[in-house]
């Protein structure tokens, strides 16, 4: 875990030399038994799951909120978000913190994953459009499929996965169904 965090930090260091390098690099993690990844430049931080507070009356994909240096950050359960599998918390579970722009503000969100693996360099020729069907994950969440050695890596579309509007609407819907 620490090594990895360091790796991410190192990444930051030589980002200054050439952004192009970073653009090809992905942080991979496992969810639903699959290898997934997001661009290393999108990752702010990786933290262990220490204490997470459940928010009642919300859907499963909202795992809860955590305290990130005094700020409250929502955590999305990637298993529940992409499928219907709630991630079981283990020693290996991690929260990948991602920041995204939302109405001129920067919103930090956490993604709960089963395990963080490694940083891979996947050059453009090794990436391709997602198939129109055939994946068990809604294709809107996939930006590209990457190939690394013999494995496929699902490169996630963070804007869709962490879409604030959609999650918010789901919360309202969940709550009204909860009231019935």
């Amino acid at each position: 875990m620490n090594e990895l965090a360091m790796a991410v930090n190192k990444q930051d260091h030589y980002l200054g030399d050439g952004v192009a390098d970073g653009a090809y690099q992905y942080l991979t993690f496992s969810v639903l038994g699959k290898l997934m990844a997001i661009g290393i430049l999108d990752v702010k931080e990786i933290i262990e799951v220490s204490s997470m507070t459940r928010v009642p009356m919300t859907q499963n994909s909202i795992r809860g909120v955590i305290n990130l240096r005094g700020n409250v950050v929502p955590v999305v359960d990637l298993g529940a978000r992409l499928g219907s599998h709630i991630i079981k918390l283990t020693k290996k579970s991690c929260i990948v913190l991602v920041s995204l722009a939302f109405h001129d503000e920067t919103q930090t969100m956490g993604i709960l994953v089963e395990q963080v693996n490694e940083i891979l360099t996947i050059p453009e020729q090794n990436r391709q459009k997602p198939p129109d069907f055939g994946t068990d994950i809604d294709s809107k969440f996939i930006s590209q499929i990457g190939r690394y050695e013999e494995d496929f890596v699902i490169l996630l579309n963070k804007e869709k996965v962490l879409c604030v509007e959609e999650l918010s609407e789901q919360i309202v819907a969940a709550q009204s169904s909860f009231c019935v």
């Binding site: 507070t53 928010v55 009642p56 009356m57 919300t58 909202i62 909120v65 305290n67 005094g70 700020n71 409250v72 950050v73 929502p74 939302f102 109405h103 503000e105 919103q107 969100m109 604030v164 999650l167 918010s168 609407e169 919360i171 309202v172 709550q175």
Partner: peptide, 19 residues
């Protein structure tokens, strides 16, 4: 009072969080 964030803006019954 810490805001819960935009994701929770429609949530009723919970108005915020505190550390």
């Amino acid at each position: 009072i810490k805001p819960l964030g935009k994701v929770f803006q429609g949530l009723k019954g919970v108005s915020g969080a505190t550390v």
